[in-house]
Design a binder for these strands. Structure first.
Length: 262
DNA sequence: ATGGTCGCCTTGCGA
């Protein structure tokens, strides 16, 4: 059985419900994980997605901020959520498929503008969030699991348009990259996108502020698909759908896809 | 060149 999973920071699921429906129609993933839904769960337009065959959803939401949802055309069981850093933010939710695969959907805090936790508490919050993820993975080794989401860190030099120019820019600072890698390694997670596409520049986000985002191409790979080590060899077919960033009234993120033969 | 653009909690804030 092959399962295709996609992750996409949608930046308002209500404003962009038609774009979600278009992606479901054109690309037909089995599971689509969304971040920054910016909606209470009961206001997510599930009927729009159910009409496309995606009637199963597990989500956590809040008004205006954050929000994560897992849409599926296969039955889903709610596998809970965790309130990282105790702020009550809707930044994590998990679901389980009938074949036993657990899917974790994360929206890691962006971390503000200044990469110094002494003057910017949002940066400290981001590092603390990652440390809590790491502690959880150390305590309970993930098995038969996929972790996806907007992790708001671009770890590799070829995950950003300019390694040198972004060394002091939140999302690519050494402390974030180190924390990101120790967090991933604590769970023996495999970076599926880079296992499939090991060479070359790879981005999933381009700022709204660029005059011409595609020509400037100042992107970063902030959105990730990880697999637990026991199923990593089953992963294949990773892609980032750059063209989706060019749709009308787009999200500033492109969706990331991976498939698993389970 | 320290700007620029989004979306919602709105005339500010978070990204």
């Amino acid at each position: 059985m092959s399962i295709t999973i996609a992750t996409w920071n949608i930046n308002s699921v209500r404003l962009r419900a038609d774009l979600v429906a278009r992606l479901l129609r054109d690309e037909a993933p089995d599971v689509l994980c969304l971040q920054e839904c910016k909606s209470p769960v009961d206001k997510i337009p599930l009927e729009t997605f159910a009409a496309r065959g995606y009637g199963h959803m597990v989500a956590r939401g809040q008004k205006g901020y954050n929000g994560v949802a897992i849409l599926s055309r296969l039955p889903l069981e709610d596998a809970g959520h965790r309130d990282f850093v105790g702020k009550g933010d809707a930044r994590h939710v998990a679901a389980r498929l009938e074949n036993g695969l657990t899917i974790h959907n994360y929206y890691v805090p962006a971390g503000g503008d200044v990469p110094d936790r002494d003057v910017n508490e949002k940066f400290g919050h981001k590092l603390d969030f990652l440390a809590e993820m790491r502690a959880w993975f150390t305590d309970t080794a993930p098995e038969k699991s996929v972790l996806v989401g907007d992790l708001n860190i671009a770890p590799r030099e070829d995950d950003v348009w300019s390694h040198k120019q972004l060394l002091k820019v939140v999302s690519h600072t050494p402390i974030e990259v180190d924390t990101f890698e120790t967090t991933r390694e604590a769970g023996n997670w495999v970076d599926v996108t880079r296992a499939d596409i090991p060479e070359g520049q790879l981005y999933s986000w381009w700022s709204y502020r660029a005059r011409d985002w595609s020509a400037a191409d100042k992107g970063r790979r902030l959105d990730h698909v990880w697999a637990s080590a026991d199923i990593a060899a089953a992963a294949h077919g990773s892609r980032i759908l750059r063209e989706v960033r060019g749709w009308d009234q787009p999200s500033d993120h492109a969706p990331v896809f991976a498939s698993f033969d389970l």
